[in-house]
């Protein structure tokens, strides 16, 4: 299931990458929507693996890998704190289906912002173009968030119908 998702996301992402100035990075959906109880080594390795795959396809070795491993790591620490205390064992996926839209939005805003900040900072690799980088971070974050919501929406409604 997860492996299938990687392939799908990478292909979608590879196409969106061409878009230009504002780059949405939907691939973080893969890391964000891993099961809550996924083994830590798997989350981290997957972050690194997905990042490296993107890097390979966009010829930027280490860039996406670094940013994605970072959010994978932060997710390990932060997710248990973010989850509602009333969570049951069945509610194992951090999705709208279990925790609702407001929780999901807060969750993706935090991690998208973290990921994009690190990504664009590493891409600029200096504070010379600080404001330009800041604008890129905010614009791309908004774009990515829209796509994440859209993706979740599709998944949600398709599951509903099932």
């Amino acid at each position: 299931m997860v492996v299938l998702f990687i392939g799908l996301q990478v292909f979608i992402l590879n196409n969106i990458q061409i878009a230009g100035f504002v780059n949405p990075y939907l691939y973080i959906y893969l890391i964000l929507c891993l099961p809550v109880n996924a083994p830590k080594w798997l989350v981290l390795s997957l972050g690194f693996g997905v990042g490296t795959a993107i890097d390979y396809l966009t010829a930027t070795p280490g860039l996406h890998a670094s940013a994605t491993v970072f959010i994978a790591f932060v997710r390990l620490i932060l997710l248990p704190m973010l989850l509602p205390l009333s969570r049951t064992e069945d509610e194992n996926w951090p999705t709208v289906k279990y925790f609702g839209w407001s929780w999901f939005l807060r969750y993706i805003v935090i991690f998208t912002l973290l990921h994009h900040t690190l990504l664009f900072m590493l891409e600029a690799f200096s504070f010379k173009l600080f404001w330009f980088t800041a604008i890129k971070i905010v614009a791309s974050t908004i774009f990515t968030l829209l796509l994440l919501v859209f993706t979740q929406r599709i998944q949600y409604s398709s599951e509903d119908r099932m």
């Binding site: 390795s45 690194f48 490296t52 070795p61 280490g62 890998a65 590493l122 200096s126």
Partner: peptide, 28 residues
Amino acid sequence: YHYLLFIVLQVTAFMLLVSKNPYQRAEF
């Protein structure tokens, strides 16, 4: 172990970043 794993992976990514990308390498 996940702290260690994170550091190893992050350092690897960073090394890749500054050694394989001409721009980041120059800035670094």
